[in-house]
Design a protein around this nucleic acid. Structure first.
Length: 485
DNA sequence: TTTTGAGTTGTTCGA
DNA sequence: GTCGAACAACTCAAA
């Protein structure tokens, strides 16, 4: 009979390094057993989307291999977290179960269920901190709650104690050697089968802790210099593309912070770029705090008056938007990049979100749901925060008059049309002058490029100028709903 | 408590 | 071609 093992319950912390729960579980020399539970009951409608499942499959494969090298088994099961964990703990005679905190409300609820179920068996549950840079109890706004405006929030973070040092990977991991039944990853059916839509994902990504660190180093080596100036360009993409790795916890925000800070110290002339990059981590931090304070931020507009917003009834444009067939090249390019690779450049996310909510007047929740299913970095806090920001109904939201013009945005951030040429190849031969507004192109340029609007590429599904006026009127109608003071 | 200044990412129009 | 103002009103943070 082997000594009682400690179980590490993995969720969005699929890494060995800087993993407080894993380090603590290994600390006393007890044998360690990892478990991942595919729980589609707990999150309800926020169960993992398709692209997330694809990523998860490969990330768990990588995590399993890493743990295996230390002799630590990774058990994979599915079902309701509390039931599965309690059963597993009983089966292996666990001493305690360790996990890192989670930001999403239903998973926080699941932690409470797990604690109860374990306590009923006399097994200890040991919870560790949230995946954040700054302690939520230290950086607080006026009323003691979360900041509601980003700029003062980030100033307060930067004035606070810097994030604590990261933990090294546990040195002496002792694996549990007893029997613990496990499903295979294939049993979880995380990968698409028919049709297999994941070819573009496979070409674009390599999930896993090792790859996440390689991507961070590559970013710091090649794209930190000039980041502030180039981060808004979708092609060539100069962003870190760490979002899925951060979401699944293949790398921690702390690790990214410290690696960047070290680089800034070594290369002081890149300090400004580094600050701009760290500020993006700040947005992750900010939206996480918003979710903690407002657990329903993914469902309901933070400004209650938006319950009355006159969204368009018919959502015929939704499908054109999803399929990248709106006739607006920058919108279509973004939506096709999303569909094919499970990811979209941040600038383009704003453009397509503005198009959906302002031009089409389709509720932001519809866009949020599509992103949830198609993004490999789908993250409740960031997805909801971003959509509410664009729609104008969130904390610190965009002002009502900030309505993106797809053509203008394309010309500003993709001046040569390289991004369009890559994702909307039917416009490939169009000159840069017209590539973002083919409807304005002289017929002979269209002919020369082999473009026939409405045939080889859709004509615009709406007139942006009229749509813009309609959106402004919709916002004005909200104002009149304000009760007089 | 009151007051004041500021607030990620825009576009258009007119001087 | 460039530049600044206008586009609402409101809420939050901080003095």
């Amino acid at each position: 009979m082997s000594p009682s093992p400690n179980i590490v319950w993995f969720r969005q912390d699929l890494r060995l390094a800087d993993n407080p729960a894993l380090t603590a579980a290994a600390g006393g020399g007890a044998p360690v057993l990892g478990v991942y539970i595919l729980d589609d009951e707990t999150p309800g409608r926020w169960r993992l989307g398709g692209a997330s499942r694809w990523w998860l499959h490969h990330s768990l494969t990588a995590l399993g291999r890493s743990l295996e090298r230390h002799g630590v088994p990774l058990v994979v099961r599915s079902g309701r977290s509390a039931l599965v964990l309690a059963r597993l703990a009983a089966e292996v005679g666990a001493a305690a179960v360790f996990w890192n905190g989670h930001l999403e409300p239903h998973w926080r609820q699941a932690e409470r269920e797990v604690e109860q179920a374990l306590a009923a068996q006399g097994i200890a549950g040991r919870a560790f901190g949230l995946p954040l840079l700054f302690d939520p109890t230290h950086v607080v706004g006026r009323g003691g709650g979360a900041f509601k405006v980003f700029a003062p929030f980030w100033r307060a973070c930067l004035a606070a104690a810097p994030p604590p040092a990261q933990l090294p990977p546990p040195e002496r991991l002792q694996g549990f050697t007893g029997f613990a039944d496990s499903s295979t990853l294939a049993d979880l059916r995380l990968l698409p089968t028919v049709p297999d839509w994941a070819a573009g994902l496979r070409a674009a990504w390599a999930p896993g802790e090792t790859e996440a660190h390689a991507r961070l180093v590559a970013f710091l080596d090649h794209d930190l210099a000039g980041y502030a100036a180039l981060r808004d360009r979708p092609e060539p993409c100069a962003t870190s593309r760490l979002s899925p790795a951060l979401h699944f916890g293949e790398i921690s925000a702390r690790q990214v912070w410290h690696a960047t800070a070290m680089r800034m110290a070594l290369e002081p002339h890149h300090a400004a770029d580094g600050h701009t990059f760290l500020r993006e981590l700040g947005w992750r931090e900010f939206f996480a705090r918003v979710l903690l304070e407002h657990p329903d931020v993914a469902e309901a507009p933070m400004q209650p008056r938006f319950a009355e917003f006159p969204w368009a009834r018919a959502s015929s444009g939704l499908q054109a938007w999803q399929q990248g067939r709106t006739g607006f090249p920058i919108v279509d390019a973004g939506m096709r990049q999303l569909w094919q690779t499970g990811w979209m450049h941040n600038r383009v996310r704003m453009i397509v979100a503005s198009f959906l909510t302002k031009d089409l007047l389709i509720p932001w929740q519809d866009g949020e749901a599509w992103f949830w299913d198609t993004l490999v970095d789908a993250d409740m806090a960031n997805n909801a925060g971003g959509w509410q920001w664009v729609a104008g109904c969130g904390t610190d939201a965009a002002p009502f008059f900030r309505i993106f013009s797809p053509a203008r945005q394309g010309e500003r951030f993709d001046p040569q049309g390289d991004y369009i040429r890559r994702w909307v190849p039917e416009l490939k031969l169009l000159p840069a002058r017209w590539i973002h507004r083919p409807w304005d192109s002289p017929p002979r340029d269209l002919d020369a490029a082999g473009v026939r609007l409405g045939t080889t590429y859709p004509g615009p599904i709406l007139d942006h100028e009229s749509a813009r006026k309609r959106a402004l009127a919709a916002f004005a109608s909200l104002r009149s709903l304000q009760p007089p003071k």
